[in-house]
Design a protein around this nucleic acid. Structure first.
Lengths: 366, 366
DNA sequence: CTGTTAGCGCATTCAG
DNA sequence: CTGAATGCGCTAACAG
């Protein structure tokens, strides 16, 4: 019914082993034979049986990309960048990886589930993107599972989240990096956030509201830490009331920003700036401010994070911190394919640059 | 090294067939045996070898979801809805499908490539979402490949695109539906667009600009057709200059709307309304109008399409046509799993409802 | 209800 | 450079 290697072999007048060799291209085959085989493949419309070859070779061409939210452009950009590196070899060719995105919805359970599903498929690699859930039980479970996968030959790349915690159970010196083949590309969230807050402080702002991302997420924590550190360094007096000026948004979405800004306004009607966990949240903040009759940046300055495409388009254009999402995703893809040598220590930090635009300005004179 | 079915069988003191049966749960097994096996599975941390089982069973648990643009929320919503239906059976269980999204970037070639990759994996199902590229060579190639897949046991669902063209080569009567097991959920783009334009005409608008989506896409064409039909029915005089008032946007993105609106204003400074191919484009239109000093809806009314979450949040809230994206995606998922019986004729049309909001109003009196 | 027996389609030794 | 033979890990008859 379905055409197999043997069919192609018969048609080309060679053995199936030879067909396999030309298809995988990792073995010398005479030119004449090769073309004959290729022609047969074409005429028969032969398509490799993935499972069979995965079984025999003990490795598949599946590459999983785990994202927290497919509907969020942040992940869309990273995912498509990862995929962009998987093109190779043309359609017929082997080596064609099937890059595939798995939507965890930010749920630790689904993250784990996908990981076993991918393990079951003997995935060639898996790339985990975006912030990690910081809950001890989950993170050790996750680390365990990832190390299992890595041990089974699956390449693991973390993109946009912190490195795995050191192996559980061992009481070694903490500075020893994982050393387990898991490569990490982590964003400089603390640094970027620090620079953004410093920018506001330099403009003269002292009462700066902050709407965080969801709790228990590494990114949420790091960005807040960077903010607080800048405050501590440049305006210790502002740090004192930082807690009161911080609202915990429940998600990285617009309504978190909208509601958060209203709450901030309630707590401190005299604030002169609001920083948000990311650009989407920032847009919600802007909407709330406008609904309250406040002008941006004349009355209140606003800052975001990520620099998604719409940030520059917003009105006013949003001051934010740029994360080179596409670049990082592409690099993660190459790392996943083993096309690029891992950074020393298997951890690299990706820069986060301040982008000053129209949504921030000096506070209005009182 | 890696633990296999046989290892589990040995440990549980049964045959490997029995282990297979409890794992797949589709065969009677004594309760005592079952628990013994399950315990062994657990102790050994056994994970099924997907490729091996796919090879033996001639079908895998992979479900592919093809989307035109992962970074676009339209697809994110549909994709996550499809995935939401794949939960089943708990983590250990078999039957767990690996739903996986493939980003074609709107490229016909990548679409075809993914299809062969999925065929190679013997995917259980594939769901193609969003508008189809309307180019004869490609659509027949696509239809061919899909029918191959279907013949090979892969379930095919089209969601948000028109049904496949009738089988090439046969000169049968056109009304005969495909009858090849490909199920289609098509959106009522023409009808929705018709209702939106009718709404504007009823308000009194006569000079209505239109910014289309990318050329060669089914969705682009259908929406434009609905618009023109409404014009023809209710305002034949307006239809006459419809061509001049139509700008072809190059993509479903914001800048297409921005540039398109500027071009429209150049051609017809006196237009009173602008319709866009979708909400994202509409937002670009709004930005351009505002930059030109025009108020919405006092000076110009604006309408979108899709009703993505941000449409209701925009200011002013966008009048648009609501597509039940989540509902349609979930249904596509169930259809892909064979959990729901296909509609008669294997084609169902999904409704598109007009959502009147603040961005449309009667034209200003002259 | 459970064990035995064959392959599934391909990648690899190992010989030629 | 090429062919023949073996087995990857599992499922599906087929017996018991």
């Amino acid at each position: 019914m379905t055409v197999t290697l043997a069919d192609v072999a018969a048609r080309a007048g060679v053995s199936s082993a030879t067909v396999s060799r030309v298809l995988n291209g990792n073995y010398p085959v005479a030119d004449g034979t090769r073309t004959r085989v290729l022609r047969a493949v074409d005429e028969l419309q032969y398509v490799v049986n993935g499972p069979a070859s995965a079984l025999a070779a003990a490795t598949s061409d599946l590459v999983g990309i785990l994202v927290n939210d497919v509907a969020d452009p942040f992940f869309g950009i990273v995912a498509s960048a990862v995929q962009s590196e998987m093109g190779g070899e043309g359609v017929t060719g082997a080596g064609q990886k099937l890059a595939v995105v798995c939507n965890t919805g930010g749920s630790p359970e689904r993250e784990l589930t996908y990981l076993t599903l991918l393990r079951r498929q003997r995935a060639a690699a898996v790339v985990l993107t975006g912030s990690a859930v910081e809950e001890t039980a989950h993170s050790t479970a996750l680390a365990d599972r990832l190390r299992h996968l890595a041990a089974g030959g699956t390449r693991i790349v973390l993109c946009g989240r912190p490195p795995l915690p050191p192996r559980s159970g061992t009481t070694e010196q903490p500075p020893a990096p994982a050393e387990d083949g898991v490569v990490t590309l982590t964003f400089d969230n603390r640094g970027g956030s620090h620079r953004l807050t410093a920018h506001l402080l330099t403009l003269g702002h002292r009462r700066i509201g902050y709407v965080t991302g969801p709790a228990d997420r590494s990114t949420t924590r790091h960005r807040l830490e960077g903010h607080r550190r800048a405050l501590g360094e440049q305006a210790p007096e502002a740090l004192a009331e930082a807690e009161r000026l911080t609202v915990h948004g429940g998600a990285y979405d617009r309504s978190a920003g909208y509601d958060g800004a209203l709450e901030l306004l309630r707590r401190a009607p005299d604030l002169t700036a609001v920083l948000a966990a990311n650009d989407t949240v920032a847009l919600g903040v802007c909407a709330a401010l406008r609904d309250r009759g406040l002008r941006i940046p004349e009355d209140v300055s606003v800052g975001g994070f990520d620099d998604l495409p719409f940030a520059a388009d917003a009105s006013p254009a949003l001051t934010t911190v740029r994360l080179p999402l596409h670049e990082a995703g592409a690099r993660a893809g190459r790392l996943a394919l083993g096309l690029e040598t891992p950074p020393p220590g298997d951890v690299a930090t990706v820069r986060a640059d301040l982008m000053v635009r129209a949504s921030t300005a000096p506070p209005a004179p009182r």
